[in-house]
Computed example of a mutant assay.
Amino acid sequence: MKEKGRFLKKYRGNECLNCSVPLDIIDRYCHNCGQINTTKKLSFKDFFNEFFASIFSYDSRLRHTIVGLLFRPGMISKDYIEGKRVKYANPFRFFLSVSILFFIISGLFIDFDSIIPQEKEQNNGLLEINLTNNEHKENDIINDSIAEPGVDKEDEYVYFTETQLDTMSMFTAVNKRWKTYKSHYKKTGEPMATIALDSLKHEQNTYTKYLYKRSIKTKNLNENPLELLKFVFNKLPFIIFFFLPFFALMMWLLYIRKPFNYMEHLVFIFHTQTMFFILIGIAILIDQITKSEAASSIAMLVFLFYLYKAMRKFYQQRRAKTIVKFLLVNVLFFILAGIGSIITIIGSMFIF
């Protein structure tokens, strides 16, 4: 790799600045602690050059990795697990780098407003109705509704006292408390949990405050699901990163007779998923230029063919077996993705 910045020989010292071990001018790094041998003060340019180099590996490894992914499906993974690793970027770090770029590109060009236009129109209509209803309810007094506790109809004010909630089972109490808080916010529009709980004469603790805030969020998300969609989308890089190890476990079970351990399957998964992001990312850019969605459709077909070739070369099985397992992998992937999506959406409701 070409030397530049703090790596130049003229900046090398006679001892390590970190551990004081004697060094020679030919020593690029300290042989004791591994720190770079340089006396040059850290500049703004050096800092960001090294930062981006550490993320994207701006050297020959990047070129070899991209070429290997594009033109040698499955073989780059095979080389890596067989020990030929110097010329390739770390598959895990490279996956993170590509996925971050992909979600930046897709975040810039995906039009969320066009995904659920009907819901948006319906929500605008509901908002107008709610505003009209609120105008008529401005003079209502909350205590008039509280005078009849236990009402549990969708269009009426719902209120359960602490005494009533204490007599219920745990799950029933949570459900009724949730409805009470949601109904109270719908009627009063009070966003502050402490004020709302005081009006309701409910106990104020971490649990009740949290539940009141969640009920508000849920109501707002029902009126504007686009916000939840954007929130989940922004978390997808991390969700996918933690999802892939489960997919690798599925591959390990599918190829249990093959002499691959779990980590070797994971290397293959990270390489193929990285290729998916590269293909779809390029397709999104092409679609933006051509003002169509043809490139994305073609990219999906290309990736499916790529995945088949990668499985065939990496696992070294006959064509018929590979096709059967290829179909199984896709079915299992969609099942696993569906379960993961449900868990993600439910989890997002509690952290959004």
Rank of each mutant, 00 (worst) to 15 (best):
K2A: 08
E3Y: 12
R6K: 15
R6D: 09
K10F: 04
N14Q: 12
L17H: 13
L17N: 14
N18C: 04
V21T: 15
L23Q: 12
D27S: 03
R28V: 03
R28A: 01
H31S: 09
I36E: 09
K40V: 02
S43V: 02
F44T: 04
D46G: 07
N49D: 08
F52H: 09
A53Y: 13
S57H: 13
R61C: 05
L69R: 03
G74V: 00
K78N: 05
K87P: 00
K87Y: 09
K87L: 06
A89G: 05
F94V: 05
F94A: 03
F103T: 00
I104N: 08
L108R: 09
F112L: 09
D113M: 06
S114N: 11
K120P: 01
L127C: 04
L131D: 10
N133Q: 15
N134A: 14
E138G: 06
E138I: 12
S145F: 15
E148T: 14
E148I: 11
V151T: 14
K153I: 02
E156N: 13
E156Q: 14
Y157G: 00
F160S: 03
L165A: 05
L165C: 04
M170Y: 10
T172A: 11
A173K: 15
V174Q: 13
W178Q: 11
W178T: 15
Y181N: 12
Y181M: 15
S183Q: 11
H184R: 06
T188I: 02
T188D: 06
M192C: 07
A193M: 09
I195M: 07
S199K: 14
E203P: 03
T206V: 10
T208I: 03
T208K: 10
Y212S: 06
R214Q: 15
S215G: 07
K217P: 00
L226M: 10
L228Y: 07
N234T: 08
P237T: 06
F238W: 10
F238L: 15
F241V: 11
F243P: 00
F243R: 01
L244N: 09
F246N: 06
M250V: 04
N261R: 08
Y262T: 02
H265V: 07
L266S: 09
L266R: 01
T272D: 08
Q273A: 11
M275A: 13
M275V: 02
M275F: 12
F276G: 00
I280D: 09
I282R: 01
I286Y: 04
T290R: 05
K291T: 10
S292C: 05
E293H: 13
E293D: 11
A295E: 08
S296Y: 10
I298K: 13
L301I: 15
Y306T: 08
L307W: 03
M311D: 05
R312V: 01
K313M: 05
F314P: 00
Y315R: 08
Q317A: 06
A320P: 00
K321M: 04
V324A: 14
L328T: 10
L328A: 06
V329P: 01
L332H: 03
F333W: 14
G338R: 13
I343D: 05
I343K: 08
F352T: 07
F352S: 12
